[in-house]
Design a binder for these strands. Structure first.
Length: 96
DNA sequence: CGTGTGACTGGGC
DNA sequence: GGCCCAGCCACAC
């Protein structure tokens, strides 16, 4: 993966409004390159620089080690959650 | 060049 | 709902 892909992913994440989310797969689809795993790779390496809690798995969850902090952010932003997972169908960012 | 790994997914049970 | 599994694809060894 090259640097432009990394920047494209981070820029997409920064555009997601508070209270909304996008999935790894949707970001890849939107960019037209890479795949969910590649987006996940970018987040693992540089996600700390952006609102990473607005990028979730297709089922609205995140890896175990991030769930505690993520839930705090989702609560603060009023993101629709159920059983600890974001309700993707309701929280999906406009335009996705 | 073969293998293992992982902030992923969709399908099957 | 949860678990498993194959497919996925860039990367490190």
């Amino acid at each position: 993966m090259d640097e432009s892909f990394t920047e494209a992913v981070l820029e997409t994440v920064e555009r997601v409004p508070a209270g909304h989310v996008v999935t790894y797969g949707l970001i890849a689809e939107r960019l037209g390159r890479g795949g969910a795993r590649q987006v996940g790779r970018v987040m693992a390496l540089e996600g700390a620089a952006v609102p990473w809690w607005r990028v979730v798995r297709a089922d609205g969850s995140l890896p175990p080690h991030l769930m505690v902090d993520a839930q705090r952010h989702w609560r603060d932003e009023g993101t629709p959650v159920r059983r600890g997972r974001v309700i993707v169908a309701e929280a999906l960012a406009p335009g996705f």
